[in-house]
Design a protein around this nucleic acid. Structure first.
Lengths: 299, 299
DNA sequence: CTGTTAGCGCATTCAC
DNA sequence: GTGAATGCGCTAACAG
């Protein structure tokens, strides 16, 4: 019941003083900081960029701010980072990968705030989960290789847990082990070149290589072409992730497509729903994957 | 003057209840949120990843948390985002690129908190600045091309302000205009292939191409090789940014090296110093750049 | 349904 | 030096 004139004067004051509501103060009383913490191994891991971007965007649209933390690949650091992030009272947490540390799992569970593990699936989520089975990815690649008649297979892989699981899935379907070149994170074109050199030392007659990222695959392709190998006739190459360049390389790259942006959007939707007190019908979402066949394995 | 026993009991209580100091509450009284806002056009812009990563890392080490916002390439959105970020009371602001909007410049200036503009230089900083001259980059590339005797030059460039300035610098040194293919952000290998196709339509005899990013350059190289052109004999290619793959492509890519991580570290140091009330001796830091000659322009 | 008041959890201030 | 009191700016609970 305020007169229009007063409303106008208030608006005027807001304009001239440049007033912003202080969300910190609001959050203190309402116990809702309107922030969501996200933990990624490193910002520069290309793999997760679409997810982080979609998370930021979707959360922003819902009035939330993403608080990004780099855990590194160090477990001690991860826990320290977690503590400082909790000090900012986030309303939810999104982590890339599974939470393995038992202590951390227990603490996350007790906090009672929504937690989403992404980019993986397991049968014991801390809370919610949006991802796909890396074991099945490995199996699918092995099946694809076998169907094409390739028996001399090589693996160029990063050393993180998810890449290791894909490798396990591949070996399980093959029923045997194969030459493997391990590269440290973050994977890159340069490491892919080195990995192929390594694999060709282990088995000079290798027919097909699976790489744990498209960056590695690009390096494997580069090195193969530099050595005069024809792709796919002499060497077939399959990547993982369907990076933006995969379809446009020469030759185009067969890879595993995963919708990273959808993972981010879904994780945001789950967290926001829970923050609003809605009950989430499906707290574990399998986003699936598919092999995109291109010229690096088929001419 | 508390007994050791009591200290032990307090520690015990902290452990069992899982106490975290509430930084929101602390920030309310102390008027220091211990956060720094960063505005990037988009998280997925490869260019800025090392900067964002170093910023996050350096700020974290100083006790600050980076609050990342994606302004998009839309000016209206940028201002809206800016408002919501200010509501969280950041102690400082880092922006990629210059702040062009007069209204925004004025408001940032009045806020009285440290502001760092990065990845560019100008003679009228809002506050502090860490970057390099894109005009000089363009000039240096033109000089390099001229020294090699190339006259039929092409440009494949993104449509952002900094890329436009580099192009201007190049044209200014050449003293004339040259065929240009414009691509929308974010630039990619695919867009680079299209850009070269476009340039070859404009001038089939083109000798050298400058690209506004290494991703574009990779696409130009890919397209050139696919068309049977030899690099650098038939077509020389220069990129910008020195991405991780540039040195390891086949052929390796001549490009402009900029230390993005150092920009992030320096910006963090400037903001933190000012937050601590120290006076910053050099508020405008020129990080420079250098052309790294590789095989795409020299055999 | 509007207007008032208490208090979120700390940092800072003041009295001691 | 230590310890109690105050209030940051807002939201939510309450009374009118």
């Amino acid at each position: 019941m305020v007169s229009d004139k007063t409303i106008a004067r208030v608006r005027q004051a807001v304009e001239t003083t440049g007033y912003f509501p202080n969300l910190l103060a609001g959050g203190l009383k309402s116990r809702r900081s309107m922030t969501v913490a996200a933990l990624v191994p490193a910002i520069s891991v290309q793999q997760f960029l679409p997810t982080v971007e979609a998370l930021t965007e979707s959360l922003h649209a819902a009035g939330y701010q993403l608080i990004l933390g780099q855990s590194g690949y160090d477990h001690a650091r991860e826990e320290a980072l977690f503590n400082t992030m909790m000090s900012r009272q986030p309303d939810g947490i999104v982590v890339t990968g599974l939470v393995h540390s038992a202590a951390l799992r227990e603490r996350l569970g007790r906090l009672g705030i929504p937690v989403v593990e992404t980019w993986d699936l397991s049968d014991r989520p801390v809370d919610m989960m949006v991802g796909f089975s890396h074991l099945l990815v490995g199996g699918a690649i092995a099946g694809y290789f076998l169907a094409r008649g390739w028996r001399r297979i090589g693996i160029a892989t990063g050393d993180d847990a998810r890449a290791a699981t894909r490798r396990e899935g591949l070996l399980a379907t093959l029923g045997r082990t194969v030459p493997t070149a391990y590269v440290p994170a973050p994977s890159s074109l340069a490491l892919g070149r080195r990995a192929l050199a390594d694999l060709l030392t282990q088995d000079p007659e290798i027919e097909a290589v699976y790489c744990s990222s498209d960056q590695l695959a690009q390096g494997v392709v580069t090195e193969a072409l530099a050595r005069g190998l024809r792709i796919p006739q002499d060497l077939a190459v399959c990547g993982f992730g369907d990076a933006d360049f995969a379809a446009h390389m020469e030759p185009s790259l067969t890879t595993v497509q995963v919708d990273g942006a959808a993972i981010g959007r879904t994780a945001a939707a789950l967290v926001v729903a829970r923050c609003r007190g809605e009950t989430v019908a499906a707290p574990v979402v399998n986003m699936g994957f598919r092999i995109v066949e291109r010229r690096s394995t088929a001419d």
